[in-house]
Design a protein around this nucleic acid. Sequence first.
DNA 1: CTGAGAATGAGAATCAGACTCATTCTTGAT
DNA 2: ATCAAGAATGAGTCTGATTCTCATTCTCAG
Lengths: 142, 142
Amino acid sequence: MDRHWSEEARAIVRRAGHNRGAARDALIELLSDQDCALSVAEIETRLGAQRPVARASVYRAVELLHSLHLITRVDIGDGVARYERAAYDHSHHHHLVCDSCGVLIPFEDPGLEQAIDRVGAQLGFATTEHEVTLHGTCVRCN
Amino acid sequence: MDRHWSEEARAIVRRAGHNRGAARDALIELLSDQDCALSVAEIETRLGAQRPVARASVYRAVELLHSLHLITRVDIGDGVARYERAAYDHSHHHHLVCDSCGVLIPFEDPGLEQAIDRVGAQLGFATTEHEVTLHGTCVRCN
DNA sequence: CTGAGAATGAGAATCAGACTCATTCTTGAT
DNA sequence: ATCAAGAATGAGTCTGATTCTCATTCTCAG
């Protein structure tokens, strides 16, 4: 759980000029408890266990949170977008996707982050976000 | 244009036990001329200018070429898959996406590749492919 | 407490991508 | 060159994710 993140997120949303809403609050609460990315379908199911939330509301909420850089979008190539809270300290992780069993394994690597920052700077491209996905076979499936 | 690649691609497809087909040949020819990734819709349009090809055929062809590692799939987070020929020398590039104007800019960086290889090895994950996407604002939009 | 504007819910509309099947090529064998 | 078997293609249908619409409900400043 990350109480700091959920409070921060709600504060930023308010400052951006949005009213509070039950659906979005529930989503923020849910995401603050996750270790890795969730798809909209997964979000809908988990929220439904406590308080049904319309799919459209979930999409609207993730879109808003993403535009405010409060969550990041993870695309592992299966046609389904996943979202996870962004770390406010700018440390963050990327993903290993096992193409055999489908598990999504988070990892972080400072060296990789440095290499990426360097690339963006070299090319004069103002990077706001980046995504790295490794595809392969996990230890269990090998 | 990359004549070597298109010939190599056709040879590998044949060796994999596939008959030749006009649609797939046209796709290979098209991709050999591209510098960066194309979506299926773009492929369909460009091929249509010379010789109409059914969407299903394009999907089938890219799926096959991808499974043979002749092309790589690029996912920039807009819900549309793009494909580009894979370099046979294992050097390859990644992408900068300008979230303002939408341009897709290819780049390559050996240091980044090294960092990625190291990460996969460290985690005992047999990586077959990887993808790096930087989002931000390009020079022109700044 | 109230009205204006924002958020939500339910379902329709879109759009990418996968599937189906009848028709048309390819190719190895004759 | 001809043929049959199997592969590839095309057109359309189907599915599933995401977006849009609009009526209803909620939030909040006054």
